[in-house]
Simulated scan of single mutants.
Amino acid sequence: MSLYSSIASTGSCLPERVVSNVQLTEFLAKRGVETSAEWIETRTGIRQRYICSEEETNAHLASKAAIQALERARLLPGEVDLIVLATSTPDQVFPSTACLVQGAIGAKKAVAFDIQAVCSGFVYALTIADSMLKSGQFKNALVIGSEVFSRLMDWQDRTTCVLFGDGAGAVVLKADTQPGILGCKLHADGSLEHILNAKGRIVNGQIVGDPFLRMDGQAVFRQAVSVLGQSALELMHEADFDPSKLDFLVPHQANVRILQSVAKRLKLPEDRVVVTVGDHGNTSAASVPLALDVAVSQGRIKKGHHVLLQGVGGGFTWGSVLVRM
Results as ranks from 00 to 15, higher is better:
Ala170Ile: 02
Gly319Met: 08
Ala62Asn: 06
Gly106Ala: 12
His306Val: 02
Lys264Thr: 11
Ala8Ser: 15
Ala69Tyr: 03
Trp318Val: 06
Ser63Gln: 06
Ser150Val: 06
Cys184Thr: 15
Thr160Lys: 03
Thr42Ala: 14
Lys174Pro: 00
Phe27Gly: 02
Gln68Ile: 09
Ser36Gln: 10
Asn140Ser: 14
Met236Gly: 04
Ser131Pro: 01
Ile195Gly: 10
Leu28Ala: 09
Ala168Asp: 01
Val84Cys: 06
Leu249Tyr: 13
Asp242Phe: 00
Ser284Ile: 11
Arg201Thr: 14
Glu270Ile: 04
Gly217Lys: 10
His280Pro: 00
Val208His: 13
Leu126Thr: 03
Leu322Pro: 06
Ser12Asn: 12
Ala8Val: 07
Pro269Cys: 09
Ser2Leu: 08
Leu75Ala: 10
Asp166Gly: 01
Ser63Val: 06
Gln310Thr: 15
Gly180Cys: 08
Arg257Phe: 12
Val275Lys: 11
Val294Ile: 04
Val274Lys: 07
Asp240Phe: 00
Ala112Trp: 02
Ala170Asp: 00
Leu290Met: 10
Ala29Asp: 10
Leu82Arg: 12
Asp91Ser: 08
Ser244Lys: 14
Gln206Ile: 05
His187Gly: 05
Leu186Asn: 12
Asn255Pro: 06
Ile144Asp: 04
Gln92Pro: 00
Asp130Gln: 06
Thr177Ala: 13
Ala104His: 07
Glu270Thr: 13
Lys185Val: 00
Ala285Thr: 08
Ala141Arg: 11
Gln260Leu: 01
Ala286Tyr: 02
Ala125Tyr: 09
Gln116Phe: 02
Lys109Ala: 14
Ala141Ser: 11
Asp176Arg: 10
Thr127His: 04
Arg272Leu: 01
Pro289Ser: 10
Pro15Ser: 12
